[in-house]
Amino acid sequence: MKQFVIALLALVLAACATPPPAKEMTPVDTGKRIALTFDDVPRAAGAFQTPDERTRRIIAALREAGADQVAFFVNPGHIAERPGAERRIAAYTAAGHLIANHSNTHPGLSETPAELYLADIDAAGVWLEGRKGYRPWFRYPYLDEGRADKAKRDAVRAGLASRGLSDGYVTADASDWWLEQATIDAKDAGQPIDRAALRDLYVESHVGAADFFDDLARRAIGRSPVHVMLMHETDLAALFLPDLIAALRSDGWTIVSPDIAYADPIAAEAARYDTPSAQGTLTEMIAWEKGLPAPRWYDRNDTKVLSALFRARVLHLPPTQE
């Protein structure tokens, strides 16, 4: 009997020491959500593709990555000078994506009288109204809302409200337009371009921007809003969107529709603020209003920083002497 008890006890102890079966790992829900948006549609040709190739690649990349809906902010005044542009915009909306107003000719509000600026918005609205996928959002070119000119800022805000347009703000920005132009310039100059390094710089800059601005928002308003990422219709987007979306998801981000993002209360919260200068991301302006210390913007939005990274990593050139 004693031997039986000892044997039974040994079995119990062995069972307790055996680890439980491994459970299937599931992604952690970090609560981080972000919508992707693309400005300056239709853009001219970039460094690597024709505009038609670029549009096909962007649509395919979004479909393959499971990013079901993004928004393209359109400058209709550029359509006539870019053959096939209207057809390419229609291809975006046929694929289920959205279009919105980015002004007709892309003026900066700081350099434009308010009445002329609103007239330019109206010209874009004539082309956009009634088209498939249209949303009544307006995004300021250059994210310029009048800077320190509060009278002009308020006049345009009132004009947008009277037209039923809401602010197509952004909360995260990685200056992808600069990377695109630097790539075009390098190609035109005959400089070898390390595409793998360019991909890595593009992807990590966007993920870094999303995380930086999310941290800024959490400190400013105490929560993570549904973010809106500013991007542009570029060859780099066409090439690297699958890598970027995978990296965002790996970092805990969920890609959502701009419809979800623009329903976030952050827009109503921000409308109550009176920042010293209206220019840039909404996150930055809120942080400024709340008195958060600098830095209130992502370091790679400084083109000197981005230029040094591009030169060293993509072109494999030594630092410039200043």
Rank of each mutant, 00 (worst) to 15 (best):
D243E: 13
D243Q: 13
P242Y: 04
Q279R: 15
P265N: 10
L282Q: 04
A263V: 01
R249T: 00
R272Q: 15
A267K: 12
I245E: 06
L282Y: 10
D251M: 05
A270S: 13
P258E: 05
G252Q: 06
T254E: 15
S250Q: 15
P293E: 15
P276S: 04
E269F: 14
D259T: 08
G280Q: 07
A261Y: 04
I245S: 06
M285E: 12
T281P: 09
G291V: 09
D264V: 07
E269G: 03
S257P: 02
D259P: 01
P293H: 08
P265K: 03
A261D: 00
S257G: 02
G280R: 09
Y262E: 03
A287S: 04
A246E: 14
G252L: 04
A270F: 14
A267V: 08
A271G: 04
S250R: 15
L282I: 05
I286W: 11
E289P: 04
T283G: 01
I286G: 02
T281C: 08
A278F: 14
L282K: 03
D264M: 08
W253I: 03
A271Y: 00
A246M: 07
W288I: 11
P258K: 10
P258Q: 06
Q279I: 14
S250W: 00
A270T: 10
S250E: 14
T254K: 15
P293V: 05
P293Y: 00
A261E: 09
W288C: 05
I266G: 02
A287H: 09
L282S: 02
A263W: 12
D264S: 06
G252F: 06
P265D: 12
Q279C: 13
